[in-house]
Design a protein around this nucleic acid. Sequence first.
DNA 1: TTGCTGACTTGGC
DNA 2: AGCCAAGCCAGCA
Length: 114
Amino acid sequence: MIAAGDLFFRRVYALVREIPRGRVATYGQIAEMLGVPRGARAVGWALRALPGHEEGSVPWHRVVGAGGRISPRGGPGPQMQRRLLEAEGVDFRSGRIDIARHGLLAPDGRRAAR
DNA sequence: TTGCTGACTTGGC
DNA sequence: AGCCAAGCCAGCA
């Protein structure tokens, strides 16, 4: 259960839940949606504090860094994140995600991917 | 209230 | 292409 005061965290979680399967959003993009263009780090903080309770409900793995690269955090996290994304059809051919295709507002390019 | 840290981003070497 | 430094935001001691 999230504390009543942690409104920012709840907003972040709510937004991440809205990310469709097979698509990804960047920290900066989420922050901008929240009305905080430079609050990318705050978004990361929120996800870091993501309780295991919400972990099953919030697709945190669909949140990546700018340029479609997974933020190294020193744990099995990044590896699992990449695995989950690949399972959704996200292409890591270049070692990073193509935001132009898998981005939140990007047209479904998964089909065009090759 | 002050200061440090961090799942970030951008710009310069 | 990869590494370093500065800027910004929120939470916690």
